[in-house]
Design a protein around this nucleic acid. Structure first.
Lengths: 138, 138
DNA sequence: AGTGTTAGTCTCTTTTTGAGACCAACGTCA
DNA sequence: TGACGTTGGTCTCAAAAAGAGACTAACACT
């Protein structure tokens, strides 16, 4: 809540934004709050699939073979709650449910996809770093 | 491992990369593998702080008041293992340890910071979406 | 001798995640 | 008619991960 905010932008090259290093308050940090959800095991995966096209529940379940129904339901509900995806029930028998990206979700997907691209591009470097680390600590 | 990869780039506008929607294999997915770590509760926070300047262990602990020492140690070790940060021990008495960003870490921080900026900018929209959701489901 | 500093580790409890059985309502096929 | 499949979930219980906090070793200062 309190604490002097000192802009590092002018001192540290490449700094992205103001960081409060003296009396930093991360407790009500919006970034952490949102990264919690985005960073969940299944969230990005679902956003990625739904960014391609709307999908129904069972379809998603079949696409992600190793997700439990419980976690699929829960992750979808979390994403819906945060306004990233839309849930629509069609009155078929039995009723079918379609999940699709919202505008907010699409706008999130832009920076997110950059990060995913980075991950894909640098996967090998990370794997090598892990090997180095694991062999060094033995 | 197997499964035909169909490029959606040419069909779905704005598609970021190839997605295998028929026989999708997320099991050995590098993206998931890396997002797991980045998405951890403390990882982004630490990367953000260390992107500003190198820090010592106790310094980090004091900056993040609500992190347990156990999780701080563990998260730092994970980030180090993945090659994002560097750990250097100085032979003072008692020995001090400094953590700093590696080149890989800095390159990760670029797309990551875009996402964090998005989170910061759209925090209000997400909060509103949550309120709508929570009041609707009651 | 007692206290504080360093960077951790160890143990125990609580929270989160995962596996899988179960549900209601309808459609299909014999 | 009655068994079986399909829909999108919920419920329970076990396993894994995270958090709180006590404890450590080696040295400095008082």
């Amino acid at each position: 809540m309190s604490g002097k905010v000192l802009s590092l932008k002018n001192r540290v090259p490449g700094m992205r934004r103001e960081i409060d290093l003296a009396g930093l308050d991360f407790s009500n940090c919006p970034v952490r709050d949102m990264m919690q959800h985005i960073g969940g095991k299944w969230s990005t995966l679902l956003l990625e699939v739904l960014a391609a096209r709307p999908c129904r529940f069972g379809e998603l379940r079949r696409m992600l073979p190793d997700i439990s129904q419980r976690m699929l339901t829960q992750t979808l509900r979390d994403l819906q709650r945060d306004g990233y995806i839309h849930r629509e029930v069609f009155p078929t028998k039995p009723p079918s449910v379609e999940y699709s990206m919202t505008e907010l979700g699409r706008s999130l997907y832009q920076p997110l996809s950059q990060l995913l691209n980075w991950a894909e591009a640098n996967h090998e470097a990370v794997r090598e770093a892990r090997l180095r680390f694991d062999s060094a600590e033995s």
